[in-house]
Simulated scan of single mutants.
Amino acid sequence: MTYPSFEEILDMQHKLSDWRKRYWIEHDLFTWQWWLLLAMFIVPWIIWFKVIPIEKKAECLSFGLLLAALASQLDEIGLNLGAWAYPYQLTQLNRGLNPYNFSFIPVAYMIVYYYFPKWKHFILGNVGVAVLASFVTEPILIKMGIYKTLYWKPIYSFPIYILLPIIFRLIIYYLLEKNKD
């Protein structure tokens, strides 16, 4: 069985990168979808800045950045497995949906993290965000052509949206307790 050489793979990656850049310039840049993605990236951080008090920003940001990093990795895995794709991008530098992974999702969960310090309320808040993300936002992004599911369904995202913030809250609380000693 023959397989491509490393040099052939690099050549193909270079061509694909060039195609993506040309596609982004001709298809994405300055369309209404692009402007929406830009707003989706900026507006949540403006809200975050206004609603989270200065003394809680570092703790909330730690929680949110953990979520953003994992959301980005899971997004990359889904893209590589062919579960979904993004016909519109804010930039052509990567394939993930950065406004969603690094703004919309982490900011929503940081707000829940701050406003619902009791576990029961935090979990209920997470379920609310999970419902919004899975059954409202994802279908809207699909209808707008920004998000294209191939074999993934929004229902598959629902438990992930609930579980990840719980895990990261446990990690942050553990680190805060360890730091007190």
Score class of each variant (00 low, 15 high):
F30S: 10
W32I: 13
W35S: 02
W35F: 11
W35G: 01
L36A: 08
L37A: 01
A39M: 10
A39Q: 06
I42N: 04
I42H: 03
V43G: 03
P44W: 01
W45N: 07
W45P: 08
I46F: 09
I46G: 06
I46E: 06
W48Y: 15
F49Q: 13
V51G: 02
V51Q: 04
I52K: 06
P53K: 09
K57C: 08
K57L: 11
K57N: 05
A58P: 04
C60K: 03
L61N: 11
S62Y: 15
F63G: 06
L65D: 03
L65Y: 14
L65R: 06
L66C: 10
L66Y: 10
L67A: 08
L67H: 12
L67M: 14
L67P: 01
A69Q: 10
A71Y: 09
Q73G: 14
Q73R: 13
L74Y: 13
E76P: 03
G78S: 05
G78C: 09
L81I: 11
L81K: 13
G82P: 00
W84A: 02
W84Y: 05
A85I: 09
Y86S: 00
Q89C: 09
Q89S: 14
L90R: 01
L90W: 02
T91E: 07
T91K: 05
R95G: 12
R95N: 15
R95L: 15
G96N: 15
N98A: 15
N101Y: 07
N101S: 11
F102Q: 14
S103N: 02
S103H: 00
F104E: 10
P106D: 07
Y109Q: 15
M110H: 03
I111V: 14
Y113K: 02
Y115I: 07
F116E: 07
F116M: 13
W119H: 05
K120F: 09
H121P: 01
I123T: 08
I123V: 13
I123Q: 04
I123P: 02
G125H: 00
V127E: 04
G128Y: 02
V129A: 07
V129Y: 05
A130H: 04
A130D: 07
A130I: 05
A130C: 09
A133C: 12
S134M: 05
F135K: 03
T137S: 11
E138D: 12
E138L: 09
P139D: 01
P139R: 03
I140L: 14
I140Y: 09
L141C: 04
I142G: 07
G145L: 05
G145C: 04
I146R: 01
I146K: 01
I146H: 02
Y147E: 05
K148F: 06
L150E: 09
Y151T: 09
Y151P: 02
P154E: 02
P154H: 05
Y156V: 13
S157A: 11
S157V: 04
F158N: 01
P159M: 03
I160L: 08
Y161C: 03
L163N: 07
L163D: 09
L164V: 14
P165F: 11
I167D: 06
F168C: 07
L170I: 10
L170Q: 12
L170E: 12
I171N: 07
I172G: 00
L175M: 15
